[in-house]
Design a protein around this nucleic acid. Structure first.
Lengths: 343, 343
DNA sequence: CCGGCTGGATGAAACGTTTTACCCGCTATA
DNA sequence: TATAGCGGGTAAAACGTTTCATCCAGCCGG
């Protein structure tokens, strides 16, 4: 069932091969009558363009790749959706590759993508070190845009969200509500995001905390179970040292805290207020809807894709840009309970 | 920076173009000395195979596509991970396409994939009707495997999970625990999965319920909020008509039920037992860990990919198969509380 | 010494497009 | 009337592989 090719279409329509190509690519340059004959031939033969041949001629494909650390992570799925939208509008195709935090798989993907002569690559690289693979791609003239990683590099564009600002927003809100003893829960601090969010929180309290105190409890990871444990430790403190508000490095921790506090008979937000981070889908559906810092994830993807397509555009010199988005605080019941200020 | 091609490599190594190709594809047929010369040339020139040309010659690509209804849905992300594994082991590449439940986008994806001459397509089609697009692909000789949909078709393979059995498992478990008044919560019934799970539950109670009663509450959708509302309605019943156990069509509903019951002062599982469906990540992390029916999602993906690759294998006639997996009940605290049987 | 075989290498064809240079007949303009 | 321009079309080259038929040199058995 060898699929019909352009030559057969031409023969069938009684025109030359070039004309068929014109019908396909520049329909307005061919007379309506012939155009119709060609279209008829195409449909009766069930002709389908052969993209390999097309790419071979063009020198590059019309696909853009995105390499994510984990396809199952909601952060990345949203980024993918955003990127997808832009890429498809541009008539290209987005292929999603999963490195699974494994740099060997990442490298293998990049090699395959290079063989395919992809138009460009959006990527959140594994790790934070130097990236010879990516440099190689860039040397070859394949545009690369970094997603949520290492904003500084000169030879590529990047998009990211300002985690320091996110920490600041959360803390400002808690201070506004009149809290004075506040805890930051999350870890390990080797994760850049965890450290940045803490830095923002610390800065806010320094600048306008008016003597408020920030207690940091480092967790081993960012899970619900870790949140429960951390909450348990807070509860072990004597009542008047106990924080009246906690800011968690992500929503999973926050949900764990919420569960443990509730189970031990404390009321949220009356006894303890909680603010999470990421605004995952469950934040709104929690027993007490969770305040959280939301990142514009799909916009991250959209912008990354736009930068990439812009860079891939032939012709005019492209200047690399580093776009930083601002997160946004979503206040829900878990922290919506002003306290009378007592000092 | 036009990338070096095979001809330049040949010139650089002082051999013919065909020899380079042999080094790449059948290294053992070329003498060690020349082979080494060629490899050196390849590395000094930074040569990278051009996949378009290769595909053009071969007539088809080495990629397999999976078209899912929603990239962000954990069900599909797990299926993708499973498929990915198998496909990559076979040296091919998996591209993930997202139809977003939109049949126009689905069609567009299939068209593009056909232009790319993909090796095969794994797909959960939008809707349940006839699928002219897929039939067209199959006519062209491109293997298609259906995922979690319409098991019966003769001209393609399929993989699915037995939802009727899943309903049965849940209900058997609740009956085993001594429950007599049980509710099934979920909807709309137009969703095949919701209907099948109910059918299984109803069959179980019919066969061995010994007079037990199944009350069905149809919800408008499968969300936490719907679960809360449904739970509220159950609570409105007079205490002795109130079910002592609920089986929910998915975990979101179940979580909603859990929240509402807890908020109204009922204990789970002492007052009301709950069983969910899907075993999402949060099931285990809920305030009361949730019993749930688990589907072998990644195995679904793995098997689908295997069937596809088998069918794509040239040569021997392939017989289409329909593989049905059995779900598994995971018992956690939310239903682990035997009642003394009173009649 | 010859015929046949073999390991190793070669050259050219073929895959299906897109693009470029070119051609033809016609009309409008100087 | 010569010329330029134009709409509509054609032929052929080029893209980078893979494969297949061919070739060559050396070797072995007879």
């Amino acid at each position: 069932m060898a699929t019909a090719n352009i030559k057969e279409v031409a023969r069938h329509a009684g025109v030359s091969l070039g004309t068929v190509s014109n019908v396909l690519n520049r329909p307005d340059t061919v007379a309506p009558a012939t155009r119709q004959r060609v279209l008829d031939a195409i449909s009766t033969l069930g002709y389908v363009r052969n993209d390999s041949a097309r790419q071979l001629r063009a020198g590059h494909s019309r696909t853009v790749a995105i390499v994510v650390l984990d396809v199952a992570n909601p952060f990345f799925t949203d980024v993918v959706r955003g990127a997808e939208q832009v890429v498809e509008e541009a008539g290209a195709m987005l292929v999603v590759c999963n490195s699974g935090e494994d740099s060997a798989r990442e490298r293998r993907h990049l090699e395959l993508l290079e063989e395919q002569r992809v138009r460009g690559v959006l990527i959140t690289p594994v790790g934070h070190g130097p990236q010879p693979n990516l440099d190689k791609l860039i040397d070859r003239g394949i545009p690369v845009v970094l997603v949520d990683r290492g904003t500084g590099r000169a030879n590529r564009c990047s998009v990211a969200v300002d985690d320091v600002l996110g920490g600041r927003l959360a803390m400002d809100h808690l201070l506004d509500q009149g809290h004075h003893r506040i805890a930051y829960l999350g870890g390990p601090l080797s994760i850049a995001q965890v450290a940045d969010r803490h830095a923002g929180a610390a800065a806010a309290i320094e600048e306008r905390g008016n003597g408020a105190e920030l207690r940091v409890a480092v967790t081993t990871n960012l899970t619900v179970a870790a949140g429960r444990r951390a909450a348990g430790e807070l509860l072990a403190l004597p009542a008047r040292q106990r924080p009246t508000a906690v800011f968690c490095a992500n929503d999973l921790i926050a949900l764990g805290v919420l569960q443990e506090l509730t189970a031990r008979g404390l009321r949220v937000p009356a006894d303890v207020a909680i603010v999470g981070y990421d605004d995952i889908e469950f934040a709104d559906a929690a027993a007490v809807p969770l305040s959280s810092v939301r990142q514009p994830r799909d916009q991250l993807g959209r912008t990354a894709a736009q930068l990439l397509l812009e860079e891939a555009e032939p012709g005019d010199a492209h200047r690399h840009r580093h776009v930083v988005f601002q997160p946004e605080l979503v206040v829900r019941r878990s922290s919506d309970h002003p306290r009378r200020t007592r000092r």
